[in-house]
Design a protein around this nucleic acid. Structure first.
Lengths: 144, 144
DNA sequence: CCAATTCCCTATCGTGTTGGTAGGTTTTAT
DNA sequence: ATAAAACCTACCAACACGATAGGGAATTGG
């Protein structure tokens, strides 16, 4: 399950991409457009900003804006940042603790393959792809 | 994340497949072989038994055994039974509550595609495939 | 028939995560 | 100076997870 943190992060990025000028976008506006509590969004944009995905400006006239082109953000990096690892089991991923049964485990190869599949899937989608979707020129036209 | 319930269920099924005679296998033995608390396993085998995946026999000489050939169990049906839905977001899956933004949601097609991918992935693997893995004749030889 | 064995059922419980709130501090433009 | 905005820290209710405990019901060996 992808939690709200990751999903809201994606929606913020889409919102910023849809208003992608040189101006800074106020969190208040994003929160109103997306219908998500501003306070809760703060904790998410803080993560995005600290890691350099977006640029946050203090004070009057401040807000957030993208640091790159929407097509240069993969959904994978957004989710890995906000959700932690996308690993389906604890034995995999960045903070995986070594398992003594690893060598004989009958299921590890399955989890590992899924892990790769999911990462590749999300790495193959950009923020720009999701924005395009709303314009009926979608990446996913064939799947719904 | 796949929880222990689903993972242990798979391990039980593999264990039963590896001792697949007409005899009933005691939960005590499975628990010792797998190194999982018998009491905790009880709640999992109860689910498997109630839904007809395995056959449980009471009393002396009782235990559990498979109802079909190991190759006739897909990992998908085991996980969907023990984990609930494999949907990455609440808007999808069996108990999905309708979302008013569904028509304009920019991310739903992505989740939907992933959902199908994951289901297809697990439906394409059988318990027999995972047993084979241990015999160096694996389904997953190329992926680890 | 009795007692051991085994699956089955219900309740409980500590721990951690999730989703969110609250209040304040710092930075900046006007 | 003042207002606006990002930033930071702490806290909290609700829930799920992983597991334990204690018994009850069915079956069989003796």
């Amino acid at each position: 399950m992808i939690s709200t943190r990751g999903r809201y992060a994606i929606r913020v990025m889409i919102d910023l991409a849809e208003h992608n000028t040189s101006e800074y976008i106020r969190l208040k506006d994003i929160s109103e457009r997306q219908g998500i509590s501003q306070k809760y969004l703060e904790s998410i944009t803080a993560t995005l900003s600290k890691s350099g995905l977006i640029d946050g400006a203090h004070g009057k006239g401040g807000g957030y804006r993208l640091n790159r082109q929407p097509s240069d953000y993969s959904i994978g990096e957004i989710l890995r940042l906000t959700e932690g690892s996308l690993a389906p089991v604890a034995c995999l991923g960045c903070d995986a603790k070594p398992c003594e049964k690893e060598a004989t485990c009958r299921t590890l190869p399955m989890w590992s393959k899924l892990y790769n599949m999911v990462n590749d899937f999300f790495d193959g989608i950009s923020v720009a792809d999701l924005v395009k979707k709303g314009e009926d020129d979608g990446f996913f036209g064939a799947c719904l």
